[in-house]
Design a protein around this nucleic acid. Structure first.
Lengths: 350, 350
DNA sequence: TTATAAGTTGAGAACGTTCTCAAAAAATAG
DNA sequence: CTATTTTTTGAGAACGTTCTCAACTTATAA
């Protein structure tokens, strides 16, 4: 451990050990056969010089950078950072590092990141695509997704019309169960707030509809309102709108976790209490939900992350493997935000 | 845009364009002089083949990987992910990518990451060190920090006894002001909860003490309790302890944001309301604080991130530059969690 | 002893860039 | 026209690895 100068190369080690760099390579790469004497000398020299192999050079030669990239909307999002946490942990275990790329939910940024990742020779990508249901994929982008010769696993959201591996929660099923739970408590008029453009939210709405249908409740499309992703305080605004226009509502079902706090703000303003005045269910668990005793559908984000990495490594081993979709269980944590619907119109001012 | 095969090299482009790879290099690297004719042919060929330069090869040759690493406790932490968000944004602007490394607040992991980063030839590091005040740095680690020939900027926490650049909030000052605010409302007995081991928290305690001293209030050391980082629900436990042992308390000052939710749980349990029963101030803004109307010292995390990146790039340009400390302003957002102290002993059961 | 097999070793090519250097081509001056 | 300067160009070395291949050493068999 003489010196940590980063420009110590395999040649320096070879020289000090009195062997060829091929032999040094064999020792540090642990392949081929090396005599005990040589091995000892090499190990000695490595320690003496504090040699660390240059990953860049290794990458150039071996076509593997030991790096995976995670492309997502924003690391500030709770779901995303839990996911990245899990991914990094899992990747580290396998000796891989994680590059982080925020798209800011902007398609051009996503494309830009993908291009960049290609030139960086990243070994694999985990992507939460910005792609929204309504939009048709521009032809030039479709080409990019399909021609990109990098193993790729989508998480959470799907890109319509493109065959890629995907790991996500059982959105439809969980939503179906949650709605059924509300119905079983006696609710007939359940307002829904969510960012409709995402495939995930679409699935959740499907489950909601299925439960209503099964219970013979007429579906009122105006009870489902769309929250523009980027809008500030959109949850509060939409809660207000729903409660104003639909005094018959007895329950609120919030499909994105990011919206929930903002919705609570509106309930607070109207002095509505759960579960007496209104029942509430939301997605994803966080401290806020715990503090407010909100019944929540929790996603096993850690497991999603782990599965995505696992699948990605399979893909890296066998790039020809057929795309498959993995749906991870969810769990409904029942707290105290749901009760029987109020029979009296509480929302008399509307 | 014929083919996105990733193994298209500069030689392929040169061949198609009918020039040497040196000329191609000149065109894409935008240096030297190239005739208009050659330039046109090269650009044509690049487009035709959908050529992207191999960053790995560039890195090997030019000794710059266009990558910076961020090493921190956990990306799940609110402060950390805001910081990473800002860093990534700023780095992207300059054509750099960000590698993310969680230490799980474990020193060995931190060391491991630093080693790894060295072998990866990362251009610079932003580090929130796990180092805690009390511990003496083991000699072998000290050596590593000092000999690591990579530009490095510390954020938030300092490593005692090691001279490195540092960007952090004005912790002492902000804490002084916040305490003064509580005192001005009439509080004399202010309980403090924080993870004492971090230099950041130490500074905040210093500010708290200074304000008390200045107001001529005797400092009672037992009012400051230490929250072990890793312990679950430690905030609640300590709030309970403080309130039980010190019925004279009229205000609580929470030094880590991560503890606040847990503390609120205890207040809820005891049915204590802010500001009537108890005043509360905490650090860092999030939705929870907004919802509970908690007066908060907010850090300009985005600015901290930006400053850190800026400084890192200065260091990358001029590695000999002397280490300096940058302290970023904070802002106290006054909400409704603080009021005049209750004169009657509310905590009668203790 | 020699023939053969097994184990060990080093020279050097390859990965895909950047960049130096000297030569060739073009432009300008006389 | 030639001489000189300026612009443009390509050959090839270098970056630090991995890995092939042939040669060498040692062990085993006959």
């Amino acid at each position: 451990m003489e010196n940590s100068n980063q420009s110590i190369t395999i040649d320096d080690v070879a020289k000090l050990a009195g062997v060829s760099k091929a032999t040094v390579g064999r020792v540090i790469g642990n392949y081929g056969s090396v005599s005990d004497k040589s091995r000892r000398k090499v190990i000695e020299a490595v320690k003496e010089l504090d040699y660390v192999p240059n990953t860049i050079a290794q990458g150039l030669r071996s076509h593997s950078t030991k790096t995976i990239a995670v492309i997502l909307g924003s690391i500030k999002n709770g779901y995303c950072n839990e996911l990245v946490y899990a991914i990094e942990k899992e990747a580290m275990k396998r000796g891989y590092n994680v590059l982080i790329c925020n798209t800011h939910e902007n398609l051009d940024k996503e494309i830009q990141h993908l291009q960049n990742i290609r030139s960086r020779q990243v070994d694999g990508v985990i992507l939460i695509p910005v792609y929204t249901i309504g939009k048709v994929i521009p032809e030039k982008y479709r080409h990019l997704y399909e021609s990109l010769n990098i193993p790729m696993v989508l998480v959470d959201r799907n890109i319509m019309g493109i065959e890629k591996d995907l790991v996500q929660s059982k959105n439809e099923e969980a939503s179906y169960e949650a709605t059924k739970y509300l119905i079983s408590l006696g609710h007939r008029n359940i307002g829904v707030i969510g960012t409709v453009a995402y495939s995930t939210v679409q699935d959740r709405i499907k489950g909601y509809r299925r439960a209503l249908q099964e219970a013979g409740i007429t579906i009122n499309a105006s009870l489902v309102v769309d929250a523009e992703y980027s809008e500030k305080h959109v949850g509060q605004k939409l809660a207000d709108k729903l409660l104003k226009e639909h005094p018959e509502l007895t329950a609120l079902y919030v499909l994105n976790n990011t919206l929930c706090g903002s919705v609570l703000l509106e309930l607070k303003k109207r002095n509505l209490h759960m579960p007496d005045d209104l029942s509430l269910i939301t997605w994803d668990d966080d401290e806020l939900n715990e503090l407010f005793d909100i019944t929540t559908i929790v996603q096993y984000v850690e497991e999603i992350g782990r599965s995505a990495v696992k699948r990605l490594f399979e893909l890296m081993e066998n790039p020809q493997s057929r795309a498959e979709i993995q749906r991870i269980d969810t769990e409904m944590v029942v707290r105290k935000s749901c009760g029987k619907p109020k029979t009296v119109r509480w929302n008399s001012k509307a």
